[in-house]
Amino acid sequence: MDFGAMVDYLPLFEQAMWLTLRIGWIGILGSLVIGLVVAMITHYKIPVLYQISLFYIELYRNTPLLIQLFFMYFALPRVLGVGIDAEACGMLGLALLGGAYMAESFRSGLEAVEPIQTESALSLGMTKAQVMRYVVLPQAVSLSVQSFVANIIFLLKETSVFSAISLMDLMFVAKDLIGLYYNTTECLVLLVIFYLIIILPVSILGTVVERKLRYGAFGS
């Protein structure tokens, strides 16, 4: 292995890592917001929006992110006539994909909270909104932490397809350098190291958070 070359490549990989992190985390935050909103719509079965949400969840859960991005980045602007910035497209694509997965996690958490919790809170004189905010949602969230963490890791892994819409992420840099200098082994080692830097902390943090937030399981 040529360590000199690896040191030379470091800045390029580091820059790409920041791009992946930026798009990844903004996308994940977006997916949590979308997921919560969609889960609320499906929970209260708001007409029209409910059907749209179900369709959205099924569509995004059953198609690959790569094709979704191609569609959003190359196809939609062609017909709508408005272009979209590659980075914004990546964030939006990840948020929409993640939203569908997060909505399912929220929903299974909400379903796991027993009806007696809602009934008791209502009989104490809480309003419907208060019941959701103070009683049901905290338990639902702590029950679905495990699947949130799994989704976050899944979404961070999915960021690897962004090079397809010409974003200069880790995969793009690696492929580019392999093509230029044929230092295949060095580039692949750096690629693995940088993905470990991005995903390993989340994996470890997930285990810790999961242990801390188990109170939901004892609430019932």
Partner: peptide, 18 residues
């Protein structure tokens, strides 16, 4: 769990040959 499938694809496709 941690490695994106695309990274694994690159490792096998480009790395194994090398």
């Amino acid at each position: 769990r941690i490695m994106p499938q695309l990274v694994l694809l690159f490792i096998v496709f480009f790395g194994a040959t090398r």
